[in-house]
Amino acid sequence: MATMNIIQAVNNALHLAMAADDNVVVLGEDVGKFGGVFRATVGLQAAFGEDRVIDTPLAESGIIGAAIGMALYGVTAVAEIQFSDFIFPAYDQIVNELAKFRYRSGGEYPCPVVIRTPVGGGIRGGHYHSQSPESLFVHHAGLVVVAPSNPYDAKGLLLSALESPDPVMVLEPKRVYRGPDHGKNWGSHPKGQVPEGHYTVPIGKAAIARELTGDGTAVTILTYGAMVHTCEKAAALAQQEGIDVELVDLRSLMPYDLEAIVASAKKTGRVVVANEAPRMCGYAAEITSLVMEHCFDWLEAPVTRVTGYDTPFPYTLEFAYLPDAGRVLTALRTVATYG
């Protein structure tokens, strides 16, 4: 075991994968000599050479298009898109090509590319370094989408992604890359303890990030990524008000763990769904709908969403925009006292 932040956990996973298999390639903007703008690929080029850790020209559709060709041929390509806000020049390659290759070829051409990209706000990055585009990718059939919230899961899910026969997008929560709460490091967090060797976290399985204590009105929070930590903070505050939170970290957005979602919703009958992305057609909307379809008779209150607003992502006012623990707490009170 070692104390790692998310960057170190990702870097460690890539080192392991590249050492184990000569046909693993990392490509992206500034990933080689420089080691990536977030330092996630530091040391890889020195260890594995320029042919396998490739500083590409600045063109996201080229990064993903070339990664697709590599994967079709038999190379495992790990593409880094520097910020998920920059991913849209590659959107066609991702949703029309990568996602559809296995299907459109009748199963002849699987295309297991791994795409790593940082998502989310709270880093003073403005519109072009802060967005959360997950719903735009889960909507297109054929992509596996995972959203780890901590170093242990980030490494385990990335290693699972590398072994997956399907294309996988790993959405990395950049706000908590180096610590779960505005600079606090991962050393004191249980998920900051990471095995140095190989292990995987299964795709498609949620985790319980906080269990019910049995003390207070039980409420479920369903969330993922950096919002897990915002919700943990809200849950601690809510406990003092007699609200007992079961916090489900979805971890995997496609496929999703319906069993875990339904089990928690039926257990508490009161559900808050939180995501940082805008409200309209956000991932929280789909999860809310699933809870309604599968748990209607168990619900004690309307399922309530906490989300970003339906505006572009602001710069100066980003902490007014972002869903914070206070907004989650308000939703918990509403749901806990309904009826």
Binding site: N23, V25, G62, I68, G69, M70, Y73, E108, Y109
Partner: peptide, 24 residues
């Protein structure tokens, strides 16, 4: 390789396959 209707997408893919063959 399976055919895509919006032609052009296969151009960077071809670049990638060619690179992969060289790497291997």
């Amino acid at each position: 390789v399976s055919i895509s209707s919006p032609v052009g997408t296969q151009i960077p893919q071809c670049t990638g396959s060619a690179y992969a063959a060289k790497l291997m």
